[in-house]
Simulated assay, not measured.
Amino acid sequence: MLSRPRRNRSSAAVRNLVRETELNAGHLVQPIFLLPDPNARLPVRSLPGTFRMGIEEVLREIEQCREVGIHSFMMFPAVPQEHKDKTGTYATADENFYLHAARAIKDRFPEVCLISDAALDPYSTDGHDGVVIDGRIHNDETLKLLDAMAVAQAQSGFDIIGPSDMMDGRVGSIRRALDKEHLTETAIMSYTAKYASAFYGPFRDALDSAPRQLADVPSDKKTYQMDPANVREALREADLDAAEGADYLMVKPALNYLDIIYRLHEAHPLPIAAYHVSGECAMLLAAAERGWLDYEQAASEALLSIRRAGADVIITYFAKDFARWNQARPF
């Protein structure tokens, strides 16, 4: 008997019946870049359509996102140079605008999910995710700082802590620190497989967080972020993070690492998050601006591919736009 798969593609209604992968606003997280000036709104030139904002603008942005179905946000601080030092002491300071902003967001929108960034690089004069001692990124000294940072963030209202540093043992260390302070309901979204990628440029522009070119200090993050050539290493990292108490396992970047998303999804029952990073989004936006791609169709397809690979959660700069499109025309 001749098989005709096209019968299941004959109309939009039929295609909806057999669609294997669903993507909606509930799967998406909108990143937010926070500035200390409450009313600031500055464009990120290398990522069109994205802004660095003060808390008043952030509150308006969250309101707009909620109207189209986005209820989860990952916030990153753009810390002025005068607040940076070798050990990132401003990360836990009482006057830290990032912690104050989290409280303001949760006071105004208690129902939203707020995800933190727990790493040293926004606060460090060296631009690294760990403490630099004698030209080396010191793992265990960094853990102490991450513990304090995570506790301060959880106490400020963050629902999920996002350790993005790739230090060994940080998930277990943070979990113990949170539990010690009775913050047992605060989850951890571990950056499990964070690769030393070329696609982070616009993000580092937005936060001024690139590693500094200094004598005796590494000028890249390859001693702690993963080699793009490696797969088995990601599985090992996932096993360790799961054993240490992670609630989510993240892969970053997403599009160039769909195989890693799939492998983690198949290997672990934990929810898999994928960060559709700034460079991946910027490439598509640049092509769309030149008329080479249709922005809505290409962005929707990119997000669907990440979801199809096995991501339960997708962090993307296209979240709000996709949610708008999805309201009018489900993908």
Results as ranks from 00 to 15, higher is better:
244 E>T: 02
148 A>V: 03
135 G>S: 03
254 A>R: 03
39 N>L: 15
94 D>H: 13
117 D>G: 02
284 L>A: 06
137 I>E: 06
251 V>P: 09
200 Y>N: 00
217 V>T: 11
196 A>S: 15
131 V>C: 01
223 T>E: 14
319 A>H: 00
5 P>K: 01
13 A>M: 11
44 V>S: 10
195 Y>W: 08
328 A>G: 11
10 S>P: 06
58 V>R: 07
103 R>C: 01
13 A>L: 15
97 F>H: 08
44 V>W: 01
292 W>Q: 14
240 L>I: 13
247 D>L: 05
146 L>T: 10
150 A>Q: 06
296 E>I: 12
233 E>Q: 14
173 S>K: 01
200 Y>K: 00
208 D>H: 15
88 G>D: 06
254 A>W: 08
278 S>K: 00
59 L>S: 04
87 T>F: 13
285 L>W: 00
11 S>M: 03
25 A>D: 11
250 M>A: 15
207 L>Y: 01
302 A>C: 14
124 S>K: 04
66 R>V: 02
49 G>C: 00
238 A>V: 03
36 P>I: 09
212 R>Q: 15
139 N>D: 12
157 G>C: 07
43 P>L: 09
138 H>S: 15
28 L>D: 02
135 G>V: 02
144 K>W: 10
22 E>H: 13
130 G>I: 07
197 S>T: 15
169 G>D: 04
331 F>C: 14
209 S>H: 01
131 V>S: 02
292 W>A: 14
148 A>R: 13
95 E>W: 03
148 A>F: 05
190 S>G: 05
86 K>I: 10
5 P>Y: 03
310 G>H: 08
92 T>H: 02
15 R>K: 15
117 D>V: 00
221 K>M: 10
33 F>K: 05
12 A>N: 12
27 H>R: 14
215 A>K: 14
41 R>W: 06
202 P>K: 10
75 M>C: 10
7 R>H: 10
222 K>M: 12
151 V>K: 08
123 Y>T: 00
26 G>E: 15
200 Y>D: 02
116 S>V: 11
132 V>E: 05
30 Q>R: 08
111 E>T: 11
145 L>G: 05
129 D>P: 09
223 T>F: 00
51 F>H: 14
102 A>W: 01
284 L>T: 13
277 V>K: 04
162 G>E: 03
318 F>V: 08
36 P>R: 07
130 G>Y: 07
67 E>I: 02
38 P>F: 01
13 A>K: 14
120 L>G: 01
322 F>L: 09
77 P>W: 04
181 E>L: 01
158 F>R: 07
275 Y>P: 02
124 S>H: 04
209 S>M: 08
300 S>H: 02
114 L>Y: 01
224 Y>P: 04
262 Y>Q: 12
155 Q>C: 05
34 L>C: 04
214 L>S: 09
54 G>D: 09
307 R>E: 11
48 P>L: 06
58 V>H: 07
314 I>S: 05
212 R>S: 08
143 L>N: 00
137 I>L: 14
41 R>G: 05
56 E>F: 06
73 F>P: 04
146 L>N: 01
163 P>T: 03
292 W>E: 13
65 C>W: 04
104 A>D: 06
